[in-house]
Amino acid sequence: MNIFRFLGDMTHLISILILLLKIYATKSCSGISLKTQELYALVFLTRYLDLFTDFISVYNTVMKLVFIASSLAIVWCMRNHPLVRRSYDKQLDTFRHYFLLLASFLLALLLHEKFAFQEVLWAFSIYLEAVAILPQLVLLQRSGNVDNLTGQYVFFLGAYRALYIFNWIYRYFIDPHFTRWIACVSGLVQTALYADFFYYYFISWKNNAKLQLPA
């Protein structure tokens, strides 16, 4: 494992911890898209089916379990916690995420490394992760104001994607057999979706001002 991959995993973990902290400390999930969180839970559940079939490392197994458990916990809180669910911006979270599910599934049926149950679901999870942030970005754009923790959450999530690209570039040069076209192309698309957000994040950081997205 190279440093980019490790830092990518860590920023991913930090983003989830920030989200859990926001929900726990403020008992609020305002600014957070339930649809994006549900898509992430589905991403982890469909991708990590190999927990039952392959053992890669203790690190790998623990991280997978943490991602599954934390994403399910977040979805549960947003749906069922008496205080948290009241703060959910349901009227702003209107992105048609079923369309993303359907498109990702059809693409996975067409493009996969092997036509096998687990492999098709793996490809599905990769495609779905690439676009799962869209409901969240749309919600932020619609609400305009982004609270500090929500802004940090999306920033770290984007940093994780960017670091994974460096990881692939590194692996490409170190291991000539490393060709993961599905993951790499999807990853590039996914990272590109954050470009706009990053732009406004750095502007607000430079001006030491509150993060605001244009309407």
Binding site: R5, D50, E113, N167
Partner: peptide, 10 residues
């Protein structure tokens, strides 16, 4: 060696 069907990344 890494086989084509092992996904070692998260």
């Amino acid at each position: 060696g890494e086989t084509n069907t092992t996904h070692d990344e998260l």
